[in-house]
Design a protein around this nucleic acid. Structure first.
Length: 302
DNA sequence: GTCCAGGGTATAT
DNA sequence: ATATACCATGGA
């Protein structure tokens, strides 16, 4: 552990490390990374090999420290971090828009600098989205932890165990019963294994999906998959395929947030959910992410 | 005990 | 096409 590579990733002026760190800290059951002393530690696979790194705030952006000296690790980690935190996106249009939008203004002001934190791995995004269907986020984290600790590759470093997310190939070979033991519903076990097979067989890739063109074409392709409805398709578009406009209109958290910011005495109807977001077109994923964040920060205030 | 949670499918009209 | 039942666990 004595050899390290270090690099500084420059971040946009409107990027806030602490806002993103707070989002990343939202669950004690998160198992894909660890947070200690304002630093994020994580293992990822680069060209099939595990690479351990940490990232922390730096006056010029984000300082990344990579364990070991594997060739190509630095550029791979940098690519990962840029994708993870959506560093390539210019948020100025969204921030200008949010100042004109009463329903967004407070949420965006309070959490300014937050990015749509991504899930770069396609299979991980599908599993996370499927697990999250119709249950509390807290329980989804518990299920994800069981799944990762059971089928993921463990990497021990400095007394901490990190995990690589289970590969689609691994999960494609499982029987549904193996997942069912983790208290994942029988239906979701089938969905997860089905998606794992599509990805393992190369029929479902990020590049292939992005090559389909616009969000509507991708959503159409995704909703043709068993277990993937409009909510899940838009969730994948938002967290993995990086559409700034994906809109999971059926989302209960979004409904609760809209109820709050619009001062409704009930949850909005689906047509209302669509209508509220009409002026946000182009940025509905960002609007959704900030509204989710606002809702949870309001909940913490009591 | 009841209700709800980051939905979706299967089945019945 | 649209409505309803069901999933399954855990926290409020």
């Amino acid at each position: 552990m004595s050899i390290h590579q270090q690099l500084i990733i420059r971040t946009p002026d409107d990027f806030s490390f602490s806002e993103n760190l707070e989002y990343l800290s939202r669950s004690a059951d998160e198992c894909m990374f660890h947070i200690q002393d304002e630093k994020v530690l994580r293992a990822i696979a680069i060209e099939g090999k595990p690479v351990l790194f940490r990232m922390e705030e730096h006056p010029d952006g984000i300082m990344v420290t990579i364990s070991g000296k594997a060739e190509g690790a630095a550029s791979g980690v940098e690519r990962f971090v840029r994708d993870w935190l959506d560093l390539g996106r210019d948020l100025l249009p969204f921030y200008e828009l949010s100042e004109r939008e009463p329903l967004l203004q407070e949420a965006v002001r309070r959490h300014s600098g937050l990015r749509v934190v991504g899930i770069p791995d396609l299979f991980e995004t599908f599993v996370w989205a499927i697990l999250g269907q119709q249950i509390t986020v807290a329980f989804a984290y518990v299920l994800k932890r069981r799944f990762v600790e059971t089928f993921g590759q463990a990497i021990d470093a400095d007394g901490v165990t990190h995990y690589l997310f289970p590969s689609a190939e691994t999960v494609a070979a499982l029987e549904p019963e193996a997942l069912r033991e983790l208290k994942i519903t029988a239906r979701k076990c089938e969905y997860i294994i089905g998606v794992a097979r599509l990805i393992a067989d190369g029929e479902l890739t990020k590049e292939g999906l992005l090559g389909l063109g616009g969000d509507r074409a991708i959503e159409h392709r995704l909703t043709a998959i068993r277990g993937i409805g409009p909510w899940t398709a838009n969730y994948v578009l938002m967290r993995c395929l990086r559409s700034p406009d994906a809109y999971p209109a059926a989302d209960v958290g979004l409904h609760n947030a809209l109820k709050l910011v619009a001062g409704l005495d009930r949850k909005p109807t689906l047509p209302e959910v669509e209508a509220f977001a009409e002026p946000w077109k182009g940025w509905r994923a960002y609007a959704t992410f900030y509204l989710w964040r606002y809702l949870s920060s309001e909940a913490e205030r009591g």
